[in-house]
Every structure is written in C-alpha cells, then in structure tokens.
C-alpha cells in the first residue's frame, strides 16, 4: 500500500466503557485532501487523535506513513491542529511560532512562510490572547504547517471563519496536496464536503460512507451532498 498515507484496520476505541469507534477500517490516499465528516459527537476527534497516536486504542491497528501511529519517527512528519487552538495566549503570534519551530528544528524562515499561508502576517506581533477566535484558530493551523509535514491532521480548521477566509484555506489545502502533502480535515458541515477529494463519513462511531463526492452523488442520485447524505441515512434506516 505504497500510495496510502494512513490505513486503519478494524479500529475499536472504547472510552469510559462505551465504544466511541467500532470496526473502523479505511485507507487515506497520499497527496489528497480527505474530509472527515459526520455529526458532532460521532467520533471524529477520537479518530484524529488515534491517527496522531495520542489516543489509546482498544483494538485494531492504525498505520501512518508506514509506521504504527504514535511512532517517535513520525513526530517531525505530521502536523496537527486540535479543535481548540493549541497556542499560548500570553505570547505574540511570532513568538509562539518561533517556539514551535525550535521544537521541530524547522528553519526560522518557516515562521514567515506559514504566517503568509494563513494570512496572519499583519498580526504577527499581537498577543495570541488578543486575537479573534478565527484568528486564533489560524495561528494554531500555522503551527501545524511548520516544518512542511508530509501529513496534516486538522480538526475543524474552518470553524468560525468568514466565507472568504474559508475559501482561502481550502485553496491552501489543495495547493499543499498538489505539492505532495496528505491532508485529513474534519468538519461537521456538509457544504465543505464538496471541496474534498475523498470523504469519510462517520456516524455513531462507524464508517457510514467512504467515497469521492462524485461517487456519493452517483450512488444517491442527488447533486447536493447534504441531500445525498440524508438520502443515505433514510435508505439505511429503512433496511
């Protein structure tokens, strides 16, 4: 499976006695933008944490870039942005990025590159704590871009952004994929699904659909992905 960046096999994760994910198997092709979609609480964040290797797994295997998830050799190769922005509120944007660049051993010039990528160059000397919610999320995304990782795992990176910025970020994601990066981007809004090369839709802790947007449209006969999703839900419930 040389072309898959991430592969999960029969993954099961139980937390506090309840199965958050069960029998989840999928592969993520390299150099593509992959959407992880599904309603709130369906297990998206838990799955992303399992890919990052910070989530204890009950059963099954997650393989990332040819290593078991959490392998120390992966720590420079994956960029991760959690749902709550993981940045220090009492540092300026640039200070914060410089710190994470030092931890990664990334060149100092990387700070300017990622600031431009997320359109925060004008805020570089502002305290993170004084930024708006959307700006803070982009600062956290900028940290994930440091060191040009091969795989980007982004948990709801576009929440709270205006349409223009959202558009900018999605074109950034596609530019990165074209340059050879694999992206896994979670979202709970279906209108972002159309921007992805592939979709993995979770529902109640299982894989509900694993297809391209076109494949999903063809299977349901709907042009709108949100309607396609609802159509699938109805079909499965009547079976």
């Amino acid at each position: 499976m040389a072309n898959s960046a991430v592969a999960a096999t029969a993954l099961r994760i139980a937390r506090t006695g309840r199965d958050v994910l069960r029998d989840v198997s999928f592969t993520v092709p390299a150099c593509s933008v992959n959407g992880l979609l599904g309603p709130s609480g369906c297990g998206k964040t838990t799955l992303l944490r399992a890919i990052m290797g910070v989530q204890a797994v009950t059963a099954g295997v997650v393989e990332v870039l040819g290593h078991p998830a959490g392998h120390p050799g992966l720590r420079r190769r994956i960029g991760y942005a959690t749902q709550t922005p993981a940045v220090y509120a009492d540092l300026t944007v640039a200070e914060c990025l410089r710190y994470f660049a030092a931890v990664l051993g990334a060149p100092a010039t990387d700070v300017d590159r990622v600031l431009a990528d997320v359109d925060l160059a004008g805020q570089r000397d502002r305290l993170v704590g004084s930024l708006s919610g959307g700006q803070r999320g982009r600062a956290s995304l900028a940290v994930a871009l440091l060191g040009e990782p091969e795989l980007l795992v982004l948990d709801e990176p576009t929440v709270g952004l205006d349409p223009v910025l959202r558009e900018d970020l999605w074109s950034l994601f596609h530019r990165l994929a074209a340059a050879g990066t694999t992206l896994i981007v979670s979202s709970h809004v279906m209108d972002e699904a159309a921007r992805c090369d592939r979709l993995l839709i979770l529902r109640d802790g299982t894989v509900f659909a694993d297809d391209t947007p076109d494949g999903l449209r063809a299977a349901t006969g709907e042009t709108d992905l949100e309607r396609a999703f609802l159509q699938l839900v109805r079909e499965r419930e009547t079976v």
Binding site: R75, T84, A86, V103, L104, G105
Partner: peptide, 13 residues
C-alpha cells in the same frame, strides 16, 4: 488543560 500539552506530546519534544 489547553491543548498545548497534547500538541507538544505529538512533537519531537
């Protein structure tokens, strides 16, 4: 409690 520790634990630190 903020996510910074989780992020640091995924980095070569």
């Amino acid at each position: 409690t903020t996510a910074t520790l989780e992020r640091l634990m995924t980095l070569p630190l």
